[in-house]
Design a protein around this nucleic acid. Sequence first.
RNA 1: UACCCCGUGGUGUAAUCGGUAACACUACAGGUUUUGGUCCUGUCAUUCCUGGUUCGAGUCCAGGCGGGGUAACCA
Length: 567
Amino acid sequence: MSHDTPTAPEKTYRHFIHDEIDADLAAGKNDGRVQTRFPPEPNGYLHIGHVKAICVNFGLAQKYGGKCNLRFDDTNPTKEEQEYVRSIQNDVRWLGFQWDALFYASDFFEQLYQYAEHLITTGKAYVCDLTGDQVSEYRGRLDKPGRESPFRNRPAAESLDLFRRMRKGEFPDGARTLRAKIDMASPNPNLRDPVLYRILHAHHHRTGGKWCIYPMYDFAHGQCDALEKITHSICTLEFEIHRPLYDWFLDHLPVPARPRQIEFARLNITYTVLSKRKLLELVQAKIVHGWDDPRMPTISGLRRRGYTPEALRAFCDTIGVARFNSTVDKQLLENSIREDLNKRAKRAMGVLDPIKVTLENFPVGRVEWIEAVNNPEDPSAGTRRVPITRTLWIERDDFREEPPKKFFRLAPGKEVRLRYAYCITCKEVKKDAAGNVTELVCTYDPETLHGSTPDGRKVKGIIHWVSADHALDAPVRLYDHLFAAEFPDDVPEGVDWKSNLNPNSLTQVATPKLEPSLRDAKPGVHYQFERIGYFFTDPIESKPGAPVFNRTVTLRDTWAKIEKRDE
RNA sequence: UACCCCGUGGUGUAAUCGGUAACACUACAGGUUUUGGUCCUGUCAUUCCUGGUUCGAGUCCAGGCGGGGUAACCA
């Protein structure tokens, strides 16, 4: 879709997981094999945080010549859907990765069930009749030990019988659970007889109505890792406290391999939220126009905004992998897409806030076609021709009646160069009754085409323009941060995080005036509107001859910065 | 007031066996330029604190301080 030009593989930097794997390799573990997996739950769309996890897992496999599987962690049928499975596979492929094997945790349901019976038989698990509230009450608190369930010492044979009847569907949802028998006094709550199986009479997206009991994450994840022969199970920091349980299962079950869990810090970025729950809320509340709204930090949103796989991968390389909980400055993300698009995007001219210019000495009805470079960074992109006529549009911001110092754009009596074309001088300013500038009457110097000035005078200001007779009026949408606050999650007690939404995150340009060559812009193509920013033709809404432009990111704007500072 | 993890410049990461702070982004100051874009050059840290071990500590030890995680029949 956006693979205009192939780019070289990015360099990947070393991080602490390399040290851990090197140590395992040096110790002769796993017969020198390295295998990872990306294990999303199909209950939402992937976002930029997942991009990091994907790059880490697939990156490790690539670096060590190993494999990386895609595994859907689908142990909770009440939240998971086939639609998410589809989008996740699409997003991973689009990012440029190909998994080795594709698995679902549900592929292993029968084996996991057998493992559960094994734990019951060996006295390591029991069926518990406590209600949910009771289980939680018996578990104690963070600083207080729990109490043992009255069903904890139920004979194994009785638990086995009950567990089999749970599977057969003899009990309603929530009536009983299977729990591991570990330690109700453990300082780690995960070890206080965690629930292994719960009764859920729900339709599963893959196994349909076959099961009415489902394994919990903890009971499924490590065993699936082992069954897939994963060597290094990479996950985020919040699972660190689960690691003793992860290891406990592997210690007490006849699994075919011994994977190892390693945690790293999840990604946070300024001016956005990165939690599936919150993103889902934005979609359901229709605050955004779906998961692929260009303002969303989802892969599908970023893709539609005009981000490229190369830029996202480069971004992941620069942010690194560590165990420190940090928040990356959004400018790093923007820098990576600018860097990529600068090399590949064709240039074009578009006036977003037009003001009329009449060249009084330019013949009425005459059209000159001027050659313009498509990409100064890439000569092979060639040139195109842009029409110039007597009446033009220029950017309102490129004219000041009373120019501040260092302003070298257009002003009464001042001269600027029209990009690729002639130098013009402002002779007269016309206004409406309210005092708004409605038109600039200028003269052009016919001797100044293509940069030359016969007398050698320097004309520093260069502005973009569009012929009024040829201007294309196509939808242009300007996207900005979805949130106005740098840390949207950071709200005082009782304040909704949504109060940090940026009311101006989407602006539809009222009267865009684009150069005519843009009429033929295909969907899913990157452009740079010179001096403005990078734009991407919306891959869904653009139609032949009727492109829709999404602003990916603005260009750096040194002048705007200077002006803002001087205020 | 439980347990676990973490603490290097404005931000994010580096720093092989402890040997004298690196890279990217930002910011600022210049240069180049028919995009005030790109590109190029330069400037910005005594590594949370205190004490200890050592010829030498960001790296080891101890104690503080600070931040994060954890109490779903979610993942």
